[in-house]
Computed example of a mutant assay.
Amino acid sequence: MKQRRLGKTGYQVSEIGLGCWQLGGGFGPVGDETANAILDAADAAGVNFWDTADVYGGGLSESRIGAHPKNAQVRVATKLGRGGGLFPNNYSFEGVRASLEGSARRLGVATLDLAQLHCVPTAVLREGSIFGWMDRLQAEGLVRHWGASVETIEEGLLCLEQPGLATLQIIFNVLRQDAAEQLLPKAAERDVGLIVRLPLASGLLSGKFSRDTQFEATDHRNFNRDGEAFSVGETFSGIPYERGLELVQELKGLAPESMPLSQFALRWILDHPEVSTIIAGVSKPEQLADNVAASEQRSLFPALNTRLKEWYEKDVKPAIRGGV
């Protein structure tokens, strides 16, 4: 597995990481056997960056990761700010500390490798106290490094003004390309590691969905299609499902015939050198091999990237809801 440097953390992390939302049931129920098989497969494949959060299954995802024997090279990143009674307007230093201490207990560590603010409201980011709290907790040794996971480019640019920010997690894929213009270059300038989430737009870019596809009742792709539970941009990258299916069909006509659509989508992201790692979630261990293979695919031709940008501006961007 090829590795890249995760910004000022200095960590060497796999180009393809593992998103662990699904281990908490965010994409439907996942049993212990399947969860362990996914983590085993990731470890065996050299996928050494695992991303979780305190709210994934009410701590279940963190607990499963903490209990799982893993290679010493694995870096576990967690997130805070959506649970623990903090969201949306009850943030305090004591509350943030308690949240992170809970994550550390579940993960079975004294110091967290990386703690990320988890889609904290823009107003809280603008007020700024929370950044100072993270600096303080880093100085106290509860976290080695801290970062932020954001929903919009505006929030990302705001976070990049913070000297202590080590990483930034963003939505970035062929259906959400705007970050390439300003956010990616600025992150590189500040030596901030970029973590890409939702690289396959909640599975749309696997090319395996249809109008007849059914999702579990507990799957956010069922209950949050129009932003009923949280930001609409977190589900199918903010694109209405039916329109997303149409766009995927168009994308299939642009992708190289020799490359599976999911690998094509991941390769497009990896062709941006500012990106440190992609956290792709899987519901079955065998899906990991397909994701990992994208790291070995050759870069896309410049003419194709230009065509994809034109397609995005004309056909995709007008369909995005929830801001970019």
Rank of each mutant, 00 (worst) to 15 (best):
A179C: 07
E181G: 05
Q182A: 15
L183P: 03
L183D: 01
L184Q: 04
L184G: 08
L184D: 10
L184N: 10
K186T: 14
K186Y: 14
K186A: 07
A187L: 14
A187I: 12
A188N: 13
E189H: 11
E189Q: 14
E189C: 05
E189F: 02
R190I: 03
G193Q: 12
L194R: 08
L194A: 09
L194T: 03
L194S: 05
I195C: 02
I195R: 07
V196M: 10
L198Y: 10
L198D: 15
L198K: 11
P199F: 01
L200Y: 01
L200K: 02
S202I: 00
G203I: 00
L205H: 10
G207D: 12
G207F: 04
G207N: 12
K208P: 03
K208M: 09
K208V: 12
K208D: 09
F209S: 02
F209M: 14
F209W: 09
F209D: 07
F209E: 09
F209H: 15
S210Y: 14
S210K: 11
S210L: 06
R211W: 01
R211S: 14
R211C: 06
D212C: 00
D212Q: 15
D212N: 11
T213R: 01
Q214G: 07
Q214V: 15
Q214Y: 06
Q214W: 05
E216A: 15
A217G: 06
A217Q: 14
A217L: 13
T218C: 08
